[in-house]
Deep mutational scan, measured.
Amino acid sequence: KELVLVLYDYQEKSPRELTVKKGDILTLLNSTNKDWWKIEVNGRQGFVPAAYLKKL
């Protein structure tokens, strides 16, 4: 499993997105899109802007 660090808080703006908090370490599911990465948070899957995340 690949992990990502959340660099900035992000509030979901659609049902396909997820809310994340700065400092969270989460599972990366897909990073093929350069702008939006798919991650998992508490069993939910969704997208967060790639600029808000850093691969560990």
Rank of each mutant, 00 (worst) to 15 (best):
Q45L: 10
D35F: 12
K55I: 14
N30K: 07
N33V: 05
E17V: 04
L53T: 01
T32Y: 11
G46S: 03
S31P: 06
P15G: 09
R16K: 15
T32A: 13
S31W: 09
G43Y: 06
T19C: 05
P15A: 08
E2H: 12
Y8W: 13
Y10E: 00
I25C: 05
K13C: 08
G43L: 05
V41A: 15
I25Y: 04
K55T: 08
V4Q: 00
Y10K: 00
T32S: 12
E40P: 00
N30V: 09
G46E: 03
I39C: 09
Y8S: 09
L5F: 08
I25S: 02
E2R: 09
T27A: 09
T27M: 11
L5G: 02
L29I: 14
W36C: 06
T32K: 13
Y10R: 02
Q11K: 15
E2P: 12
K13H: 10
K13L: 12
Q11W: 15
T32C: 07
L18Q: 06
K22A: 14
K54T: 09
R44V: 14
K1Q: 14
K54P: 00
E2A: 13
P49K: 04
V4R: 00
K21D: 04
W36I: 04
S31M: 10
S14P: 09
N30W: 07
K34Y: 09
W37Q: 01
T19R: 06
N42A: 11
S31Y: 09
L56N: 03
P15H: 13
K55E: 08
D9H: 05
N33A: 10
R16M: 14
L7S: 02
L53F: 04
K22R: 15
A50K: 08
W36T: 03
K22M: 08
G43Q: 07
V41G: 14
V6I: 04
E40K: 05
N30H: 10
E17P: 10
G46C: 04
D9V: 02
Y10Q: 01
A50F: 02
L5M: 13
F47T: 03
T27N: 11
L56G: 03
S31D: 14
D35L: 11
V20K: 00
I39F: 02
S31L: 04
N33Q: 11
N42M: 10
P15C: 06
K54M: 13
V20C: 05
Q11G: 08
E17N: 08
K55F: 08
A50N: 04
E17I: 03
K13M: 12
T19M: 06
V6D: 00
N42R: 09
V41E: 10
W36D: 02
V6N: 00
P15M: 08
T32D: 14
T27P: 14
V41I: 12
G46P: 01
Q11I: 11
L53A: 01
R44F: 13
T19G: 06
Q11F: 14
L18V: 12
K34E: 13
I25M: 09
Y10W: 09
R16Q: 15
I25W: 03
D24R: 04
K38R: 14
V41C: 07
V48P: 00
L28I: 06
P49T: 01
K22I: 05
A50I: 04
L29W: 06
Y8H: 15
F47Y: 15
A50D: 01
V6C: 07
Q45R: 12
Y8Q: 13
K22W: 03
N33W: 09
L53D: 00
S31E: 15
G46I: 05
L3W: 13
L5C: 07
T32I: 10
I25P: 00
S14F: 10
L29A: 04
K13W: 03
P49W: 03
E12G: 14
D9Y: 04
E17C: 05
D24F: 07
A51Y: 10
Q11D: 11
L3Q: 14
E2Q: 11
I25V: 14
Q45T: 14
L28T: 01
G46Q: 02
A50L: 02
D9C: 03
N42G: 12
D35K: 14
L53W: 01
V48H: 01
T32N: 12
K54A: 11
Y8R: 12
P49I: 02
Y10F: 06
L7P: 00
V6M: 03
I25H: 04
V4C: 07
K1S: 15
V41D: 14
A50Y: 02
V41M: 11
K1Y: 15
L26Q: 05
G43P: 02
S31K: 07
L29C: 06
G43I: 02
E12C: 07
K34L: 11
K34Q: 12
T19V: 06
L29P: 00
G23M: 03
V4M: 02
V4S: 01
Y52I: 12
Y10P: 01
P49F: 02
E17F: 05
K55D: 04
L56P: 02
D35C: 07
K34P: 13
L3R: 12
L7G: 01
L53M: 07
Q45S: 11
K38C: 08
L56D: 02
V48L: 10
Q45C: 08
L7R: 06
V41H: 15
V48C: 05
I39A: 10
V20P: 00
N30F: 07
T27I: 13
A51V: 11
P49M: 03
Q45W: 10
N42Q: 13
T27S: 11
K22G: 07
V41F: 15
T32E: 15
Y52G: 08
Q11A: 15
L28S: 02
A51K: 13
V48N: 00
A51H: 14
K54G: 06
Y52W: 07
N33L: 09
K13T: 13
V48G: 01
V41S: 13
G43H: 09
Q11M: 12
K21A: 11
D24S: 15
K1E: 11
K13A: 13
T19P: 03
E40Y: 05
R44N: 10
L56F: 11
V6H: 00
K22Y: 05
K21Q: 12
L29F: 04
L18A: 13
